[in-house]
Amino acid sequence: MPDLHDCPADIRQRAARVRLACFDVDGTLTDGRLYFDSEGRELKTFHVHDGLGMVMLRKVGIAVAFVTARASAIAEQRAAELDVQAHTRITDKFACVSGIARELGIGLDEVAFMGDDLPDLRVLPHVGFSAAPANAHPWVRDRVHWRSAAPGGEGAVREFCDLLLAAQGHAERMLSEAMPTGVQA
C-alpha cells in the first residue's frame, strides 16, 4: 500500500476526488509489445495485480474504463472479465473520456487517466489526475501529475489503483477484510 505521507498534498487531493479511472491498454495495462501468432492473431499479457486493482476500484464505487486506439478483441475480453468498460478503436481519447464522464454525471476533475504515449496526450491535461507508467514515453512522462515506479504491464496500474484507494480511505479496510480474523501483518 502506498505511503500517502510520501505523496505531495496535491497528489493526495487529486486521488481523493477520482470517481472514474480510465486506462490506456498497450504500454499501460500491457508491456507495450505486440505479439502475433502464425495465423496473425494478436496476443497480449496482462498483470493479475493490475486486474485486481481495477476490481477493487469498482468495489468502492469508482468506475473503470479501458480507452485504447487499437482494435483489440483481447482488450475487450479482459475488460469483460473484470466487468469494466472497454472502448477500442478510439481516435479521440479526450472525446471518449469526456463522454464517459458525462454519462456518469461527473466532471473531468473527478476523472483519472493513465497512459504512456502520444495518443494519450490529448486527454491528459484535461483530467483531474493524470498518470503514467515508469516507462512511458518522455513526452507523456514529463506531462503527468504522477508516475508509477513499475513499468506498464508490470504492476503500474495496481500502484495507481492502490494510491486511489489509500487516498480515499479504503485501503486499510480492504486489507483488514482480506486478512483472516485474529491475524496481524
Rank of each mutant, 00 (worst) to 15 (best):
V84K: 03
F46A: 07
L20V: 00
V60G: 09
A156V: 03
K59T: 02
A131C: 15
V48L: 08
K59R: 13
L163H: 12
V64H: 09
D120M: 06
M114W: 01
V18L: 10
V123T: 14
A69K: 15
R102Y: 05
R143H: 11
F46R: 05
L121R: 15
A86V: 01
A132T: 02
L104D: 00
E110Q: 15
H47Q: 02
S98M: 07
E110T: 00
Q184W: 14
F36L: 15
L163P: 12
F160M: 05
M56Q: 15
V97Q: 12
A75M: 05
A21C: 09
I11A: 07
G61M: 01
Q13E: 15
A136S: 11
L29I: 00
A112W: 11
D162M: 05
V123S: 12
A150P: 07
I106D: 11
S72T: 09
G152P: 06
M56E: 15
Q77S: 08
E76W: 01
A69C: 13
A167F: 05
D6G: 05
L118V: 14
F23M: 01
H170L: 03
F23L: 02
F129D: 13
D92R: 13
G115D: 08
M1S: 12
L20R: 03
E177Q: 12
A178T: 09
L34M: 14
R143G: 03
A73K: 08
S98Y: 10
C22T: 10
R14V: 11
D37R: 05
G27L: 01
M179K: 10
A185K: 08
V144P: 07
R58W: 03
D26R: 03
R70P: 14
A156R: 02
L165D: 12
L20P: 13
